[in-house]
Simulated assay, not measured.
Amino acid sequence: MANHSQLIARAQSLCEQRGVRMTTQRERVYDIIIQSKRAITAYDLLDVLREIEPQAKPPTVYRALDFLLSQGFVHKVESTNCFIACCLPGHEQHCSQLLICDSCGTVEECHADALSNALQKKANQVGFAVSHHVVETHGICHACQLATHKMQ
């Protein structure tokens, strides 16, 4: 994944190219998501945002999230109703595969071209027009497996 400053710079550049505004609040919400070690809920985002903007309200976060999602800067983890930074902002058509740890809550975005191609091929065969796709895989991450193994 690109580092924090690279993601912010890439998002700002894409906003300029697209003629949309990365407002201060949108950038703050994006920054919080990037810095989060795990997928983060909207209300957890609001709690962190209130540390620097005490007047922030839920609509502030939801409007920022809508913008960030529409621009392809973040992904929504549907199964847990959380958000993560996209590791490839600007590549909206990519198929995101998310590895979600059910123990610690970490979410790792990965890309398996063979899986993406197979999904697209099947969609084409049945005449389905894909707007976007995210594959969520639940399990236990390596760190949690090691921790569990050490406890036994």
Rank of each mutant, 00 (worst) to 15 (best):
C87T: 07
P58Q: 04
Q35A: 13
I34Q: 15
A11L: 09
M151N: 09
A85H: 03
V77H: 13
T60P: 06
T148I: 04
V126G: 03
L88F: 07
H132G: 12
C95Y: 02
Q35S: 14
G90E: 06
H149P: 01
A114P: 08
A2C: 04
V48C: 02
S103P: 04
I52M: 12
I34D: 09
Q55T: 13
A129C: 00
C15P: 10
A56V: 05
D113M: 07
I100C: 14
S13Y: 07
A143G: 02
T41N: 09
S116C: 13
I8Q: 05
Q12F: 06
A56N: 05
K57N: 10
R28D: 09
C101Y: 05
H111Y: 15
Q71D: 10
I140K: 10
C86L: 00
A147G: 02
V61S: 01
V134R: 08
V61R: 05
I33L: 13
F67D: 00
Q145D: 09
L88W: 08
L14M: 03
C86A: 13
H111S: 08
V126L: 02
R21S: 07
E92V: 07
E16F: 03
L99P: 08
L7G: 03
I100G: 11
G72L: 06
Y30V: 00
V48M: 10
H111P: 01
N124P: 00
L46S: 06
A85E: 02
I100E: 11
G139K: 00
D31I: 04
C110V: 11
A64I: 06
I8L: 15
C110T: 14
S13E: 15
T137V: 07
Q12K: 15
A56M: 05
L49T: 01
Q97I: 04
T24K: 14
L14R: 07
S131A: 06
E27T: 04
A118E: 14
E51M: 09
H75R: 03
F73T: 00
V74Y: 12
V20A: 09
A114V: 09
V48P: 02
R21K: 13
E78T: 03
C104V: 05
K121Y: 13
R21M: 08
H111E: 10
V77F: 12
G19H: 11
I33K: 05
E16N: 12
R10T: 15
V61A: 04
A85V: 09
V29K: 09
F67P: 03
T41I: 01
D102M: 07
V74D: 05
H138W: 04
T24G: 06
N117G: 10
S13L: 10
